[in-house]
Computed example of a mutant assay.
Amino acid sequence: MSLTLLFKTITRDVAKVGFCHHVQSLHTGCQLLAAEKALLMKLRKSTGYTFINCKKALEKFDNDIKQAETWLHEQAQKEGWSKANKLEGRKAKEGLIGLFIGEKAAVMVEVNCETDFVARNEKFQQLVKDVAFATMAHHQNKTQSKQGYVKSALSGEEVCKLSVDEGASLADRVALTIGRLGENMSIKRAVTLSVPAEWGVGSYVHGGVSGQTEVAMGRYGALVVFQGGNEGEQNTLGRKLGQHVVGEAPESLGNMDDLPCGESETRLLPQTFLGDPSRTVAQFLTGQQARVLDFVRFQCGEMTSEDSK
């Protein structure tokens, strides 16, 4: 082989090796980029934060996703408190009523935001769930040694002090959600109740959020405490009574023998029953061998006695 041909062969082989090495480096780089992208997408899905913030967190902690997630939550909470202070004067009249039924116990809460758009957001709905669960845990802990009918109303300020997982307060959770969604939010109120074994709790939510199971959510909610009812039909009875309370908005209970006073009737028992306009609520209950003992109705954004103070 001539020197010229030998030189060409060596040059070609070296070029081949260099090209293969370059391709291998590109392949390794692509694999690395794909792994980092998957990690980034996982962090973004689990936290809901922006692409830029997730990328910053992963870079800060050398792709340690747990440390990155913790840092993101801390930053969002700090930012949320800052935003909460800035947005405090903005009206939050939208939101959701959350209703959670336990074993012979129930809670109903109201959590507000500025727009219906945010009320439909999964992160805001998770906040409503957190408030309902924390309120129920507080109620059960407080009533462990009590028997009979126990009912308690809590202001938004009282609910905010309740703890959620890992000792954080609901106020912290509100700030975290404000940091994520950028709207003013507040916990307005809650009611809790427990009933004796022989009593029932009816419930109904109107304008409901689809897909919710444990905590029912909507713009209107009602709890109705009742006794009796035909065997096997108590759940249906409770729902019908809840629908009536939501639809007709009674202000007081009244008595079984009260006479109706026309269309402006605000007492529950003399009202025309929503499920059967030919009878009053009292007449419907008589037919069911039942009686209503108490009820609570929440309408999202409505004025309460606390608002006028």
Results as ranks from 00 to 15, higher is better:
residue 143 T to H: 06
residue 234 Q to L: 10
residue 55 K to M: 13
residue 28 T to A: 11
residue 95 G to Y: 00
residue 156 G to M: 11
residue 223 L to Q: 03
residue 193 L to K: 10
residue 133 F to D: 13
residue 155 S to R: 09
residue 10 I to Q: 11
residue 107 V to A: 05
residue 82 S to Q: 13
residue 279 R to S: 10
residue 187 I to E: 08
residue 290 A to S: 02
residue 12 R to G: 04
residue 133 F to M: 03
residue 303 M to T: 15
residue 171 A to M: 11
residue 4 T to G: 02
residue 306 E to F: 14
residue 89 G to P: 03
residue 39 L to S: 14
residue 187 I to R: 12
residue 56 K to L: 13
residue 193 L to Y: 06
residue 127 L to N: 05
residue 74 E to V: 07
residue 108 M to R: 05
residue 254 G to T: 07
residue 186 S to C: 14
residue 192 T to N: 08
residue 13 D to H: 03
residue 161 K to A: 13
residue 109 V to P: 08
residue 300 C to K: 06
residue 31 Q to K: 14
residue 3 L to S: 03
residue 208 G to V: 10
residue 201 V to F: 04
residue 126 Q to K: 03
residue 76 A to L: 01
residue 34 A to S: 12
residue 290 A to M: 01
residue 199 W to G: 04
residue 164 V to M: 11
residue 207 G to K: 05
residue 180 R to Q: 08
residue 152 S to F: 11
residue 136 M to N: 01
residue 42 K to D: 04
residue 148 G to F: 03
residue 124 F to R: 01
residue 259 L to K: 14
residue 68 A to H: 04
residue 197 A to Q: 15
residue 230 N to E: 11
residue 14 V to C: 14
residue 104 K to M: 03
residue 267 R to K: 15
residue 235 N to V: 11
residue 231 E to W: 04
residue 229 G to I: 03
residue 120 R to H: 06
residue 250 P to R: 09
residue 65 I to E: 15
residue 201 V to M: 07
residue 301 G to D: 03
residue 204 Y to L: 06
residue 193 L to N: 09
residue 143 T to V: 07
residue 33 L to G: 06
residue 88 E to N: 08
residue 107 V to C: 05
residue 100 F to L: 15
residue 27 H to F: 06
residue 250 P to V: 09
residue 258 D to F: 11
residue 150 V to P: 04
residue 257 D to E: 09
residue 228 G to M: 08
residue 141 N to K: 15
residue 209 V to C: 11
residue 63 N to I: 00
residue 251 E to M: 08
residue 274 L to C: 00
residue 182 G to M: 02
residue 80 G to E: 05
residue 268 L to I: 01
residue 224 V to L: 09
residue 184 N to Y: 12
residue 297 R to L: 00
residue 61 F to I: 00
residue 41 M to W: 08
residue 279 R to D: 13
residue 27 H to W: 10
residue 41 M to T: 07
residue 184 N to I: 14
